[in-house]
Amino acid sequence: MTGDRSKNKLPRRRVLAVGFAGHQGKEYLPIVRESADIVGGVDPAPAASSLADEWGFPHYDVLGEALRKVDFDAAVVTVPHSEHFPVCTELLAHGSHVIKEKPFAVTEQEARQLVHLAQRADRSVLTLLQRNFDPVFQFAQENLARIGEPYWFSYDYHFNLAHPTTGWRASREQAMGGVLLDMGYHLIDVLSGLFPEPAPEPPRVHSAFVHHCQEMRDRRLEDLVSLMFSYPSTGLAGSLRVSRHNYEKTEHLCVLGTEGALNVVPEAAVLHSVGGLPLERRTGKGPRTDAVRSMIAHHLGHLDDRCYRQAHLQRQLAVVRTIDGIYRDRLRERNELADRCA
């Protein structure tokens, strides 16, 4: 019996790490190695070569060279937002699966093109969003129906950074957006999972962009965003706030329904009755890396699952469409104001 299981066991995937010398890339290296063999790394950073030597895989400055020299099954991509689309299109043209940091894409047009390229190549493009593998958010998804018809949600997610944003996230050319595209992507993905809208009708969103630092205002990179959502087909409404410079780091999702409520924080999710009585509770056991480990292993194990791939692509397309729509509305408002003032 043991011999049969060994015979049927899938071989370990071979992974190319693209952007591995950055903060997120270095965080993923030990977790990826638990489930796959890292057979090469691409990063032009000065420290990348020594880091690759430390981990024992060949290093390449440019992706094209790695594609010519390395045999791999999937690429794990952790690069600045501006590089996501060109890197992913090059990998898909090579016939490679892609597992990538968020965002799936920056604009709806890019997202639709990635979906087309992935389907044409019969390859997956899977986005790393750990809340989908976190027990407290899984509890919320599984128990949403128990609160009846949801009619209101509030979702807050804040950092408490004491200093202005630094690195590529402080560059308009590389970040392509502020906290909405960066931190907010996770939250809008959670909302898209809880409250999927019938295509092609996305939620209606009113936004307020705020700047903690003058330099971020000058670069049009919002430090705080406040959103009001309404879902035409269901009557659901809600608010979302994201910022980098709050007085404390916090995350809190609350959903009110006709028969109860759900409260979710990183440590626990609680199902409440209409009167507020706690009915059931799920705690977040273990460190955050447990969800990341589960996420990466799951994606690596489902690269060839077309049903999983298609559902993931459609959900990410909805997330990008919502965020891109918010940014386009803000740009239109800014242009109209400039025309009035001219």
Rank of each mutant, 00 (worst) to 15 (best):
Q138P: 00
Q141K: 12
E248C: 15
P150A: 11
E197A: 15
N246R: 12
P232Y: 00
R321I: 01
T165C: 03
E27L: 14
L128C: 06
D134A: 04
G22M: 06
D304I: 02
Q113D: 01
E173S: 12
V190H: 02
E197M: 05
G238P: 05
P30Q: 00
F139G: 06
R112N: 08
S82H: 12
L253I: 07
H212W: 06
P287L: 09
G19T: 01
V205S: 08
Y28K: 14
E215K: 14
L161A: 10
A162E: 14
R315W: 05
A66C: 14
I99G: 01
R123Q: 09
S154M: 09
H84K: 13
K26P: 00
L63P: 04
K100P: 01
E259A: 15
M295Q: 11
G178S: 05
P80L: 04
Q119A: 10
N160M: 08
G286C: 07
S207A: 15
G235W: 04
N263A: 04
Y327P: 11
H158E: 13
N132C: 02
H272C: 15
R288H: 10
G276E: 01
E101Q: 15
I323D: 07
R306G: 05
S239C: 06
R131S: 08
G193W: 09
V18S: 07
A75R: 02
E101C: 14
L128F: 03
R123L: 04
V265Q: 14
G56Q: 12
C254F: 13
R33T: 00
E173Y: 09
D156G: 13
C213K: 05
L303M: 06
